[in-house]
């Protein structure tokens, strides 16, 4: 549910910390004026006063209510301006919007997460939730790919994850231009190494479109059902309200019906990997 009565009006939030994750990626810690809760996988619109607005899925735990974090890759105009923000600046947030991950469907299952690049942001939020409820899942396997070791974000989180029972983490880089003791290659290479009961498993894919495409194809080859592959679709979400039309994907509006879809839901639509 939105926190403001006027659906277009942002809630102000103070930027209390900025974390450099990689040369192109920063995490912003935001403290909203009003309590702002979200479900993992739902997204917000971040407003820069007078400049513009862009959608982000919070990367922080949905269990934390007094602040939230978003992880932003410098990609275009608004994200470039976000990278110029300073601690103490005030931004606006609207939301939360969309549907989160249907966690109850994951109970009792082996959860496979395939992530790449900045697609780790929503996954981090999901991981926090999975850790908090780990007794409800059989196991969690997280395969993460980045371009180079420098581009790998949330480095300290990997150490933590590796110490958590039921959690397995595998990482790859496309190119090891500095010492790297894990896999070299694309993220799909990691899928050859995991042991998973595909019939009692589901897969979550979040990353750049090219990774979503190759990842989904490999998962299908492995035997995953189309209804068990959850994809986070990247679209130009503007209003977040299912009204402005910018994120139309066939008869879906990604901001309202997504951003998470099963492959089965969207496979018939034209140009989904664009």
């Amino acid at each position: 549910m939105p926190v403001t009565e006027n659906i277009y009006e942002p809630v102000k939030a103070k930027l209390t910390n900025i974390i450099d994750e990689s040369p192109l990626i920063k995490t912003l810690v935001l403290v909203p004026e009003k309590e702002f809760s979200f479900k993992t996988g739902e997204f917000i619109e971040l407003t820069l006063n007078g400049i513009g607005e862009a959608p982000f899925t919070p990367s922080s735990s949905p269990l934390v209510k007094d602040k939230l974090e978003i992880t932003v890759m410098k990609a275009g105009y608004v994200t470039g301006k976000i990278h110029q923000l300073n601690i103490g600046d005030v931004v606006g947030i609207r939301g939360p919007f969309g549907k989160g991950y249907p966690l109850e469907k994951f109970y009792g299952k082996e959860v496979l997460i395939v992530g790449g690049g900045c697609g780790f942001a929503p996954i981090r939020s999901l991981l926090y939730k999975l850790i908090a409820e780990k007794e409800k899942f059989k196991k969690v396997i997280f395969c993460y790919g980045s371009k180079t070791p420098k581009d790998c974000i949330y480095k300290t989180l990997f150490k933590e994850l590796r110490n958590i029972e039921k959690f397995q983490v595998l990482r790859s880089v496309d190119m090891a231009d500095e010492p790297w003791d894990e896999t070299i290659g694309v993220v799909t290479v990691l899928l050859d190494q995991i042991k998973i009961d595909i019939n009692n498993s589901l897969a979550i894919v979040c990353g750049p479109p090219i990774m979503m495409k190759f990842g989904t194809i490999r998962l299908l080859e492995m035997g995953y059902r189309e209804t068990d592959i959850y994809l986070s679709m990247e679209k130009n979400m503007s209003c977040g309200l299912g009204k402005c039309g910018h994120c139309m994907l066939g008869d879906y509006l990604v901001c309202k019906d997504g951003p998470v879809f099963t492959y089965n839901e969207i496979k018939g639509l034209p140009d989904i990997w664009r």
């Binding site: 009006e9 407003t47 006063n49 607005e53 606006g92």
Partner: peptide, 12 residues
């Protein structure tokens, strides 16, 4: 379909 344009004062 519409576009939201930001204006100072968090106006849209």
């Amino acid at each position: 379909c519409f576009l939201l344009i930001d204006r100072p004062g968090f106006e849209k």
